Amino acid sequence: MWWIYALLSALFAALTAIFAKIGIKDVDSNLATAIRTVFILVIAWAIALFKGGANVGSLTRTNWIFLALSGCATGLSWVFYFKALQMGEVQQVAPVDKLSVALAIVLAAIFLGEPLTWKNSIGALLIIAGTIVLILK
């Protein structure tokens, strides 16, 4: 079942690139990121409240710290992504952005102790090779 959510994530990430490229025309990329964030905030809270998972009091200090760090990383990712979209083509920027998949595989092995299998390693190397091809295009 997880893979259905992962495929939906990929679909909406692809739509994000298309919609963003159209939406940032003649707009400061930082302002565009801020506007986008407002909509994400409203949708995320609506889903959390609707699904009954908004028990903020149950979060630990560690939860808060790492969710805050994740939020900061996400925000910076969006700022740089929108700037890259403004300067480059979607067909270049979106796949290079997905280098995050290869980086996540490596970082998960280092920091989370997740196994780095041959299958994961080959996949990560193919993503890195593809990214290099796209950058050199």
Rank of each mutant, 00 (worst) to 15 (best):
W2R: 14
W2D: 15
W2H: 14
I4V: 15
A6T: 15
L7W: 09
L8P: 08
F12V: 09
F12H: 03
F12M: 06
A13Y: 15
I18Y: 11
F19T: 10
A20E: 04
K21P: 03
I22W: 04
I22E: 03
I22T: 05
I22K: 12
G23Q: 04
I24C: 07
K25Q: 12
K25S: 06
D26W: 12
V27A: 10
D28Q: 13
D28I: 08
D28A: 13
N30L: 10
A32C: 06
I35R: 03
I35L: 09
R36D: 03
F39A: 02
F39E: 02
I40E: 05
L41D: 00
L41N: 01
L41F: 10
V42T: 03
V42C: 01
V42N: 01
I43C: 02
I47E: 00
I47M: 01
L49Q: 00
L49W: 05
G52A: 01
G52M: 00
G52C: 03
G53D: 07
G53Q: 07
A54F: 14
N55H: 08
N55F: 02
V56C: 02
G57V: 01
G57I: 02
G57F: 02
L59G: 09
L59Q: 11
T60Y: 11
T62Q: 15
I65M: 12
L67R: 05
A68R: 02
L69C: 14
S70K: 06
S70R: 08
S70P: 00
G71T: 11
G71F: 04
C72M: 15
A73T: 10
A73V: 10
A73M: 13
T74G: 12
G75L: 08
L76R: 06
S77P: 00
S77Q: 10
W78F: 14
V79K: 10
F80I: 10
Y81D: 11
Y81Q: 11
F82G: 13
A84Y: 01
G88I: 03
V90M: 11
V90E: 10
Q92A: 08
Q92C: 02
P95H: 03
P95M: 02
V96C: 12
D97Q: 15
K98H: 13
K98A: 09
K98S: 08
L99D: 11
L99K: 07
L99V: 12
V101N: 13
L103T: 15
L103Q: 13
A104T: 15
V106H: 09
L107C: 13
A108F: 12
A109T: 13
A109E: 10
A109I: 05
I110H: 10
I110T: 08
I110W: 09
F111W: 11
F111H: 04
L112H: 08
E114I: 04
E114F: 07
E114G: 07
L116K: 09
T117C: 01
W118N: 08
W118F: 08
K119R: 14
K119Q: 12
K119C: 02
N120L: 13
N120I: 03
S121I: 02
S121W: 01
I122C: 01
I122K: 01
G123E: 01
A124I: 06
L125I: 10
L125W: 04
A129P: 04
G130Q: 01
G130W: 04
V133Q: 00
L136A: 04
K137M: 01
K137I: 00
